[in-house]
Nucleic acid binder design. Structure first.
Length: 339
DNA sequence: AGGATCCCCCGCCAGA
DNA sequence: AGTCTGGCGGGGGATC
């Protein structure tokens, strides 16, 4: 994994949009595109995130399943999904989700036009896994940064050399387009969208309902050495839990390593293997996530938020916040503060 | 904004 | 042979 590329190629906000918050305009009308061969799991992700009653998270969506060939379409797992809408449903969609339809899916001219029109109207388009090929064939990814499942990156690069392909990340957001990698990364990308459009509290609420970790960052590696954590991996879980409940205290990596009963070196190594990031980076991300919630809640100065989250000063918080969120704490608060 | 200092963290390697 | 550990060094990022 080229870490340099991974890190800087996936800011969580689109380049050029720093300071322009919210990054994604709040949306309501969501359309999921299906056709023959659609992946059942990835079809299920937008259904779960946007198709359920999310009013307990303060969200309301109008959810539609559309297809260029309305009616029953055959999912990859053998059963059928019935699309009640045709491409006309894309005409007023604010978010269009394209799950995996296979790398050889043929994008019809009407579909390409509908996708282009959606983007032209200001809609957001999100792909999962090989759904990136649909966007690419429709010409939506030209000159843009994008990603897909690791096993398809070579193929996508070969077919579309004009795409700035970012391998080995969970998702990439570039302007109106969000592309995500295989299967579960679609959940991370969806939660990212919720956060970018509706704030951290909404994203946390949805994540809690889904019983998934709040949100992994887009820049995280697709490869984690132990995706299914063996018994020995329990060694990290307690220390991470402990760290989360002590974010306000000054924590250094050596302290965490000692709590995990490992040497510094082994701790660093295991940490990267199991989480895909480094201890210090992880700490900073968690602290920024905590700052999100406090900033949204209001009632604390930025300096107080910084202290509460364990940043030495407002200046330090500000520096990390700008780097990771692409905007300043104050403007983030202005964008998401309840009125 | 710049500079001094601190501390990550990752390649390397020897030892278990 | 192969795997895992943990000490060391230093470059560079983070902090003040």
């Amino acid at each position: 994994v080229d870490r340099t590329l991974t890190r800087e190629a996936t800011p969580e906000l689109a380049p050029g949009e720093a300071g322009a918050v919210p990054v994604v305009a709040p949306f309501r009308r969501v359309v999921v595109l299906v056709d023959h061969g659609v992946s059942a799991f990835e079809f299920g992700i937008p259904c779960e995130v946007f198709g359920l009653d999310r009013r307990d998270a303060g969200l309301e969506f109008e959810f539609k399943v559309a297809s260029p060939t309305p009616g029953p379409v055959r999912a990859s797992a053998g059963f059928e999904v019935v699309a009640h809408h045709g491409l006309a449903a894309l005409a007023d969609a604010e978010l269009v989700v394209v799950p995996a339809l296979g790398v050889d899916y043929r994008v019809s001219p009407p579909l390409a036009r509908a996708l282009h029109d959606a983007v032209g109207r200001g809609a957001t388009v999100m792909s999962l896994c090989s759904g990136a090929f649909v966007l690419a064939d429709a010409g939506l990814l030209q000159g843009r940064r994008a990603t897909t499942h690791w096993k398809y990156t070579d193929l996508l690069r070969a077919r579309h050399p004009d795409i700035e392909l970012v391998p080995d990340v969970l998702y990439v957001h570039d302007g109106p387009i969000l592309t995500s990698a295989g299967t579960a990364a679609g959940i991370d990308g969806s939660l990212y969208l919720i956060r970018a459009a509706f704030g951290a509290q909404a994203a946390v609420a949805v994540a809690r309902r889904m019983v998934v970790p709040p949100q992994r960052d887009g820049g995280q590696a697709q490869f984690v050495a132990t995706p299914v954590r063996p018994v020995s991996a329990d060694s990290l879980a307690p220390v991470l839990d402990w760290a989360l409940s002590h974010l306000g205290d000054p924590l250094d990596v050596a302290t965490l390593a000692r709590r995990a009963r490992m040497s510094d070196r082994t701790f660093a190594r295991r940490f990267r293997d199991e989480t895909g990031t480094t201890p210090h980076q992880w700490l900073v991300r968690q602290r920024v996530a905590m700052a999100d919630t406090l900033l949204e809640r209001g009632g604390m100065s930025v300096e107080q938020v910084a202290q509460t989250c364990g940043f030495g000063s407002a200046a330090v918080l500000r520096q990390h916040f700008v780097r990771i969120r692409g905007t300043t704490p104050t403007s983030y608060r202005r964008a998401f503060a309840p009125h």
